[in-house]
């Protein structure tokens, strides 16, 4: 595997991060198992993402039950993604195209 491929493989997937944040946004706080079910992620993969998200201060772990809670920064990040889509995809102008043939 080349260095480029390695860095690509270790990159956090925006889609997964957004799914975790969305689930937490809807449920307020969740334990890891429920969060894995809700996001459809394998437990070990979720844990890796949660570690990265904790590092970035998007989530924090609360209490003995290990509840995952969305932080203000995590919420801002999600809103930022929505805003980004609105701003950049929204700025695109699509010309009227024919049927092809």
């Amino acid at each position: 595997m080349s260095t480029g491929e390695q860095s690509r493989a270790s990159r956090p997937d925006l889609y997964v991060v957004a799914r975790i944040i969305k689930s937490l946004k809807e449920q307020n706080k969740m334990n890891r198992t429920a969060l894995a079910t809700s996001t459809g992620l394998a437990y070990d993969k979720l844990v890796k993402y949660l570690d990265w998200m904790q590092e970035k201060q998007f989530v924090r772990i609360e209490g003995d039950g290990g509840f995952v809670v969305l932080t203000e920064r995590g919420l801002e990040t999600y809103d930022g993604l929505v805003k980004w889509i609105m701003e950049y995809v929204g700025r695109l102008r699509f010309p009227k195209l024919g049927s092809g043939a």
Binding site: V82, K83, I85, M86, V89, G90, L92, F94, L97, S99, G100, A101
Partner: peptide
């Protein structure tokens, strides 16, 4: 706001679907 963002991506994808038709042509 979220719905609007999703709709915008839908518009983008519809345009890209059209591009696929040109490729078939």
């Amino acid at each position: 706001k979220e719905e609007s963002a999703v709709a915008k991506v839908g518009e983008l994808m519809s345009a890209l679907d059209q591009v696929k038709r040109y490729k078939a042509l």
